[in-house]
Amino acid sequence: MPPTPLAQIILSTSRAHGLVAIPHGEQHRQAARALEEAGFQRNPDGAFVAPLADGPATRQMGRALVHRAHEHGATIITSTRPCLADFGEDLAAGLPGTWSARMELHYHPAVQEDLLGPLWDNGDLLQALLHDPVPGVVFLRNSAGTELLLIERPGHSSGYLLGALAPEAYDDNWEEPHAPRSIVLPGEPDLAARLAATSFLPSYSRALHQRRLDTVLRALERIRAEYETLQAIKASGRYSDGIPLADSRMVPEMERTFADYAWLSFRDVLEHAPVLLSRCHPAATPWPQDAAALDRLRQALADSQETRNEDQELRGALFSVGGWKQARSRFGLAALPAIETWLADSAAFQRQARAAVPGGPLALSAPSPRLLTTRPASPAVPRSSGAHR
């Protein structure tokens, strides 16, 4: 991030508050003190404001601010854009559906680093938060839980950057391959809203659909590998490295261990598969025969809902490590029929979900490598992983 003055006062105008000032920099307290001594009032959102209705009083306050800023070593910067909060509210009003806009100020430059974790972007917005001072942001949120991030475009006298935050279910967003690219918006709110609605939001929806799909497929892939290993051991009476089981009574414990592992992954299916299934319409695809498989998958999710609810209730309670592991094993065993249904019908789910990408034609291209396709049967004695399983 390039060096900035240790204490800045960034001025802009607002239709609701008149003159708006943001103290910023490593010594932002000095800037805030200058504003207070010049007669500015601090708003609940942290901005300092002064009315513009009284011309003589405004000029007097302006002269006082110049003197106080000089005394406290603060640099005054006059923005060429209106207050970011105003633009955010205008943008929210022009987007489809119902959106709210919330301003957040960053007095200290380091605070903006907190946005990097939830940010889901691989474009200019990410680069701005990494390399440029961002004294203020606006969060835009709709009733469906979509959350966007708006900032002024750094290094330019006009324009804005709009990007996305990841849904709450995701916390590993750094260099995530499906992240949508942020978009540059013009300074006219109506035009900016149309551009966001017709360009960014559809790309966001497609990216989120693909991320959800890959999350479900990878979860099933992990479960499948362990499931096939367990079935091979039970059928052959041997461990993965070929050593015979010493006692068949060990099998139930192996099943409980598998159930614990499978439940951890199946929670991803329960979280993300319902919205994907809701978009699937087999009759509109080349595979209308998949309708029965999708019905089985929906029923499997419904059958697991009570178990999922119990898991969510207990997850917030204090558990010993052993007690929590036993609970997960119990959940996995209860959900085992649903898990087996999802493993059996995963191919139908994959092609239907790929065909249901929002705002696009049927996805008839080849499925992504590595993810679920029809897999060959495992050998009777699976390859050793270096330990008994």
Rank of each mutant, 00 (worst) to 15 (best):
A85G: 01
L129Q: 08
G94W: 08
P118T: 03
W99F: 11
T78D: 09
D124C: 08
T80P: 13
E71C: 03
P96H: 15
L130P: 05
P135G: 00
P118H: 07
T80R: 03
L126T: 11
H131Y: 08
P135A: 06
A93S: 14
L129Y: 11
P82W: 13
L84W: 00
V111I: 06
Q112H: 03
P96W: 13
P133F: 09
D121P: 07
G97Q: 09
E113M: 03
T98G: 01
A110G: 15
I76C: 07
Y107V: 04
T80S: 00
D90R: 00
G73F: 01
D121R: 14
E71V: 13
A128F: 07
T75K: 13
V138C: 01
G97Y: 12
I77G: 12
D132T: 03
R102G: 08
Q127C: 14
H131N: 14
L116H: 06
W99S: 05
A128I: 05
R81L: 12
P109F: 02
A101E: 01
G136Y: 00
E104F: 12
R102H: 11
L126W: 08
V138N: 04
S100E: 07
L95I: 15
G88W: 00
G97H: 09
P82V: 07
S79C: 04
D90I: 00
G97I: 05
L115M: 07
M103K: 05
R102S: 15
A69E: 15
A110T: 13
P82T: 12
A128S: 14
V138K: 00
L129K: 09
P133Y: 11
P96V: 14
Q112I: 11
E71D: 11
A85Q: 03
H70F: 05
N142Y: 02
L119R: 15
A93E: 14
P82H: 03
G123D: 13
L95F: 15
R102F: 04
V137Q: 03
N122S: 07
G136R: 06
H106W: 09
Q112E: 07
P118S: 05
G73H: 02
R141W: 03
A93H: 10
H131Q: 15
L140D: 12
